[in-house]
Write a protein that binds this DNA or RNA. Structure first.
Length: 821
DNA sequence: ATCTCCCGCCATATG
DNA sequence: CATATGGCGGGAGAT
């Protein structure tokens, strides 16, 4: 019934080339391809565009509709005859033209992203299938994942409601939360670790599986994550109904939202999605099926522009993965938000939070240590900041009452902001309960101005509170840097910090801190340090050419991975046991340092309760408790691997008095941002400016543009998000290749004033370069002020360690390969 | 060969 | 019971 592709194709070919005497064999694609490959990126784009355009679409349909091969042939023929070399010609219904992604595009084209909330728009499956000329089955695939995002919901048979993206923010936030609670990060780590261990097959030694710590915890059959206003309609209340695709899709999205390089490889995703039920069963077929489904899901998510396909390259070659390209989802800190609301009398938790809580409880009942306790000072700081931010956001416009719901995030959808006001008004009678939700979007400010922020920050008890770094994860790029500046003491302390790498530096030595904490820390760090140092073993070359001078370092890296993987558990356990004390009486902080939050994830394993002390994470996290000065040298090859469990960058920790200042915006690298040019000025920049000015790095009138370096200033309550960094990620997406090296210098003394240009250049050395152009970029961030060779702060030591002349150290090189298809 | 993933059988759910 | 949904996995196009 359906026009057979082969038939059409061969006929076409025959028609074109009578001389060819290959009747029914698959026609060599070379035939029609050369003139104008219909599926080059360009044509693909064209296709998409046409799909979006009603007229063209219908025309297209008509064409496809023509079941008569003759017609098609005719058309094709003429097309090719008359438009030789012309890039447009639909060509036969190739497989791609039937792809779910394309279909999804067509589907989406039928409905507005933000339909009027006034009246609901319905979707009739019959119509759709007819108009789009697809089997019903396919529509289900699309609808199902749309359902998972609450972009549609089912009403009844053949009947769905189109919500568009109105719910997307909430959905994503909810999903992120659930994902966090599900400890997906840890699961990911576990899987990756196992992959690693698999590599080093030849070791059966202390296989002290971490499984014990993790495996047992998960069990919950995660049901479909619902949204307050968008419950599953119809009688499908029954539980077990929510099967795969919907839930799978949600889980998949969760993975993106929780993992810090927002990149998820297919196999990892598949394993996690499978393994949730039964741990580790190498069921090949099951795996394959899962992968298939993931592709399906990924296709529609791609159509939604939420993700895009990339490749991660690691030792074993490259594997398919997807990168989140959707909106950032801020961590929701409901606690502060609730109290911040105008409502004096403690109203019950907002519908949304409630439902989310409920949901997550259901999902992950076990160790639900819901109530966090933050370091008091931290809480203050956070609240203060959030409060201010809130003010700022609502200030410019009307004194809108921002509801308790969590969505007062920074503008994530610059392009859609205009539409927000429309949806800010609650739906009249539809869902009384959801009214609250609906209004939460109340007028987010487009571009928070720097000044307000500064003021607000100024209000913060900066000088009194204990240090709490403000972390600014960059939404799209992998690296985030936190600046721990400690005006008065940094100086003293840093003096002690040798910039040698791999040299364990017991905290106690630096500052005579006495607490047992320090002992513990010391112990831990030492071990870690030993391990790191101890290793030495031949390495595989790989991207060595890029950094010849680092060759020697590779070996240790490699060993490190493994060793860390092995001992990770121990560290974690130990760490955990000490956690309490650490959390309460910490007196040392990293300082005078730019700390790349590169992959400090281990500590969070089995540590669900540490979520709170966001600002203190660096203290609690094993990674940070290891006062290894400098950086572990790494090679490009090492960096390539995404989330190598064992990979660690350990910054120096320095004991500081509790009253140190903690302004700490994070600078994220710009390496990956070549394509993200749409950023807007945001609070991040203000924070940075404030901080810099406050500290004297930048003269008080100068503003450092945040874009694209600095993003918002969320005081995250989820360390994982910040901590997990993607630094060591090699992504291939497109043909863009970026190779960047980041240099971080420590401010050894009250930094000398910098002029703006200098600062800027330090920040974004690559700015002048063409953003979209494939190229290699090497840049140094933050050279030592006044330091000698500001241009070559990086140098290799005889021992292979990398360091800079002065107090500058660091910088692992990051090689990011981005290649789009 | 591997990566993608379309197709459609057929078990279930729904009405 | 007739349909609507939607797991699932073979196997073929794309690379």
């Amino acid at each position: 019934k359906t026009p057979l592709k082969q038939a059409a194709t061969s006929q076409l070919v025959l028609a074109e080339r009578p001389s060819e005497s290959q009747p029914l064999t698959t026609p060599p694609k070379g035939k029609e391809a050369p003139p104008a490959d219909p599926w080059t990126p360009t044509s693909n784009l064209k296709m998409l565009i046409s799909a979006a355009s009603p007229e063209i679409r219908s025309r297209e349909q008509r064409k496809q509709e023509t079941n008569s091969p003759a017609d098609v042939l005719q058309e094709k023929h003429s097309l090719q005859e008359h438009f030789l070399g012309d890039e447009y010609e639909k060509s036969q219904p190739s497989r791609k033209e039937k792809s779910l992604g394309l279909l999804c595009h067509k589907f989406l084209a039928r409905y507005p992203d933000y339909p009027s909330t006034a009246q609901k728009s319905y979707i009739c499956l019959d119509e759709v299938t007819e108009e789009l000329h697809v089997e019903r089955r396919r529509i289900y695939d699309i609808v199902n994942v749309l359902e998972s995002l609450h972009m549609v919901s089912r009403l009844a048979r053949n009947r769905y409601i189109w919500h568009g993206k109105h719910n997307l923010p909430q959905t994503l936030q909810a999903l992120k939360k659930v994902g966090e609670e599900n400890k997906y990060i840890e699961q990911i780590q576990l899987i990756k670790k196992r992959e690693y261990e698999h590599e080093f097959d030849a070791d059966g030694e202390q296989k002290e599986e971490t499984a014990s710590s993790l495996g047992s915890s998960e069990q919950s059959e995660m049901p479909f994550v619902e949204l307050p206003g968008v419950e599953f309609h119809a009688a499908s209340v029954n539980g077990r109904k929510y099967k795969s695709l919907r839930v799978m899709s949600q889980k998949f999205v969760m993975l993106f939202l929780v993992s810090t390089p927002q990149i998820v490889s297919l196999d990892v995703a598949a394993k996690i999605l499978i393994g949730e039920d039964q741990l580790e069963d190498l069921d090949k077929s099951k795996f394959k099926t899962k992968i298939r489904r993931l592709y399906d899901i990924a296709n529609v998510l791609s159509s939604l522009k939420l993700i895009k396909k990339v490749h991660v390259t690691e030792e074993r070659g490259r594997k398919p993965a997807f990168k989140w390209t959707g909106p950032e989802v801020l961590p929701n800190s409901q606690d502060t938000k609730l109290e911040a609301t105008s409502t004096a009398c403690s109203p019950p938790v907002s519908e949304s939070s409630r439902s989310k809580e409920h949901c997550s409880k259901n999902l992950f009942p076990s160790k639900g240590k819901q109530n966090f306790t933050r370091h008091s000072s931290l809480i203050k700081l956070i609240k203060s900041i959030e409060n201010d931010r809130r003010k700022i956001q609502s200030a410019p416009t009307s004194p809108v009452k921002i509801s308790t719901s969590t969505y007062q995030s920074l503008p994530v959808f610059p392009s859609t902001i205009a539409q927000l006001p429309a949806i800010s008004k609650p739906q009249p009678e539809a869902q009384p309960k959801t009214a609250e939700e609906m209004q939460m979007k109340g007028a987010p400010e487009v571009v928070p101005k720097p000044e307000p922020i500064q003021q607000s920050l100024g209000v913060c008890p900066v000088s009194h509170s204990s240090v709490s770094p403000v972390i600014l994860p960059h939404p799209h790029s992998g690296v985030s840097y936190a600046i721990y500046l400690q005006p008065s003491q940094a100086h003293t302390v840093t003096t002690y910090s040798p910039s040698f790498m791999l040299q364990p530096l017991p905290c106690a030595n630096v500052t005579g801190i006495n607490s047992n904490n320090s002992k513990v820390l010391n112990k831990i760090t030492t071990e870690e340090g030993d391990n790191q140092i101890a290793m030495a073993e031949p390495t595989k070359p790989l991207a060595a050419e890029e950094r010849p001078e680092m060759k020697s370092e590779t070996s240790s890296q490699r060993c490190l991975k493994r060793s860390l993987a092995l001992q990770e558990n121990n560290l974690i356990k130990r760490h955990r046991s000490d956690k309490e004390s650490l959390g309460t009486s910490l007196t040392f902080f990293p300082s005078g340092y730019l700390i790349p939050f590169t992959h400090c994830t281990h500590g969070n394993k089995a540590d669900s309760s540490s979520k709170e002390k966001a600002g203190l994470c660096s203290l609690q996290h094993p990674t940070y408790t290891s006062p290894i000065t400098g950086v572990i040298p790494m090679t490009a090859s090492e960096l390539k691997t995404v989330n190598i469990p064992a990979f660690h960058i350990t910054p120096l920790n320095i004991m500081l008095a509790p009253n140190s200042i903690a302004a700490a915006p994070v600078l994220s690298n710009t390496c990956l941002n070549s394509s993200n040019s749409n950023s807007v000025q945001n609070p991040g920049s203000s924070a940075l400016n404030f901080m810099l000015q406050h500290i004297g790095l930048v003269p008080a009138g100068v503003q450092v543009p945040a874009n694209p370096v600095v993003q918002h200033v969320p005081i995250s309550s989820q360390p994982e998000n910040i901590i997990h960094n993607s630094g060591n990620t090699n992504v291939q997406e497109g043909k863009v290749r970026t190779n960047c090296t980041l240099a971080v210098a420590e401010f050894t003394s009250p930094p000398p004033p910098l002029n703006e240009s200098h600062f800027l250049s330090s920040l974004q050395p690559s700015a002048p370069k063409e953003p979209q152009e494939p190229q290699a970029v090497t840049e140094n961030f933050f050279r030592t002020p006044g330091g000698p060779n500001s241009g070559s702060s990086l140098s290799a030591n005889s021992d292979g360690t990398e360091r800079t002349s002065q107090g500058t150290l660091y910088i692992p090189q990051r090689k990011l390969e981005v290649s789009e298809d």
